[in-house]
C-alpha cells in the first residue's frame, strides 16, 4: 500500500482544538466552569494572602524609609534579634541531631515501641503552642514540680532564656525527623549493608552513605525548623515573661510595639520576618524538587 493513496482529507488534531470553545475534549470542563474555579481561587488568595502581605510593607513604609530604618535603631530590637538567633541557633542543631538519630533508628531498624516513638515525634504538631509553653511553666515554674528545687539552686528557667530555648526546641521538634523518615524508609538499608560489607565502620557508613543520600531532605527540615523557631510566638510568649531587652524574641517584640500603637516600628520588624518567610519559601520549593527526585530514584532502584 502506497502512502500517497491514503486519504489526505483528515484534519489534524490541532485543527480540532482551534475550532472553538464549544468543541472541548471529553476530559475538559466547560469554559465558564474553568473561569469560575480559577477566578474564585485567585480572589480568595488575593484577599487572604496577597493583600495582608502587601499591607505589612505598606504599613511599615507609611512614614517613609527613614522612619522604617529608625525602627531598627533601638536596643530592645537588637536584644530581641539576639535572643531569636540564640534560641534558633540552639534549637535547630539540637533538633537536627535528634531528628537524624530518631529517623535513622526508625527507618533502618526494627525495635519495640517504634510506632510509639513516631507518635511522640508528632506530638508538638498536635498540641497547641500555648499548651506546650504551659507544660514548661508547670514543670519549671515557681509553683511547678521542679520550681522549688530550681530556685533553691538559683537556676531560673521560666521567664528566662533557657525556658525560651526549651519551648522553641519543643515546637520545632518534629520538622527534621518528619522529613527524613519517609525518604530513609524508601531508600532502605541495602546501601548501608553494602558499605559495612566493604569494611566501613558505623561512622563512615553514616557520613559517607546515609547522610549524603538524605542531604536535601535534611536541609529542608532544617529550613522549616529555622523558620518556625524564628517565628514561634505562642509557646515562647507563655514562658518568656515579656521582659523588655531581656526575654523578648522578635515576634514578642512586635507584639509589644503593636500594643503601644507604634505601628510603623511593629510592621517594620514584621516585614523582616516576612522577608525571612519569603526566602524560606523559595528555598523550600527548590528543595522539594530535589527531594522528589531522590524519592523517585529510590523507587526506581528497587
Amino acid at each position: 500500500m502506497n502512502a500517497s493513496t491514503l486519504p489526505t482529507t483528515l484534519e489534524s488534531p490541532e485543527s480540532w482544538q482551534v475550532a472553538g470553545p464549544q468543541l472541548r475534549t471529553a476530559t475538559e470542563e466547560s469554559t465558564w466552569v474553568r473561569w469560575l474555579l480559577v477566578g474564585s481561587t485567585l480572589t480568595f488568595l488575593t484577599l487572604v494572602l496577597f493583600v495582608p502581605l502587601a499591607a505589612i510593607f505598606a504599613e511599615a513604609l507609611r512614614k517613609g524609609w527613614a522612619a522604617y530604618f529608625a525602627s531598627f535603631n533601638n536596643p530592645n530590637f537588637w536584644s530581641a534579634v539576639k535572643l531569636s538567633f540564640l534560641a534558633t541557633g540552639i534549637s535547630v542543631p539540637a533538633n537536627l541531631i535528634f531528628g537524624v538519630a530518631a529517623s535513622w533508628a526508625i527507618a533502618k531498624f526494627d525495635f519495640r515501641g517504634k510506632s510509639l516513638l513516631i507518635t511522640l515525634i508528632d506530638l508538638p504538631f498536635a498540641v497547641s503552642p500555648v499548651v506546650s509553653g504551659l507544660i514548661y511553666v508547670l514543670l519549671f515554674g515557681m509553683t511547678g514540680w521542679l520550681g522549688p528545687w530550681l530556685s533553691s539552686h538559683n537556676i531560673q528557667i521560666i521567664f528566662a532564656v533557657p525556658g525560651i530555648v526549651l519551648a522553641t526546641i519543643f515546637v520545632t521538634f518534629p520538622f527534621v525527623a518528619r522529613e527524613l523518615i519517609p525518604l530513609m524508609q524508601e531508600q532502605g538499608s541495602e546501601e548501608e549493608q553494602a558499605a559495612v560489607s566493604l569494611g566501613a565502620n558505623g561512622w563512615q557508613t553514616f557520613f559517607r552513605v546515609t547522610l549524603p543520600n538524605v542531604k536535601w531532605a535534611l536541609l529542608y527540615g532544617v529550613i522549616l525548623s529555622t523558620a518556625r523557631a524564628m517565628g514561634e510566638f505562642g509557646a515562647v510568649s507563655v514562658v518568656s515573661g515579656h521582659i523588655r531587652g531581656k526575654t523578648n524574641t522578635l515576634p514578642l517584640h512586635i507584639e509589644v510595639l503593636y500594643n503601644e500603637y507604634n505601628f510603623v516600628a511593629a510592621f517594620a520588624v514584621a516585614s523582616l520576618l516576612t522577608l525571612l518567610a519569603l526566602v524560606t519559601l523559595v528555598l523550600k520549593t527548590t528543595l522539594e524538587w530535589r527531594i522528589q527526585r531522590d524519592l523517585e530514584e529510590a523507587a526506581k532502584s528497587e
Binding site: E191, A194, A195, N201, N213, E297
Partner: peptide, 25 residues
Amino acid sequence: GFVFQHYALFRHMTVFENVAFGLRV
C-alpha cells in the same frame, strides 16, 4: 565480597567512587 540482588550501589557516588569505596574506608 557481597553482591546484592538490587545491586545496592551508592546512588550519590560515581561508578569510580563506588568501586573505590571499600579501599577509601
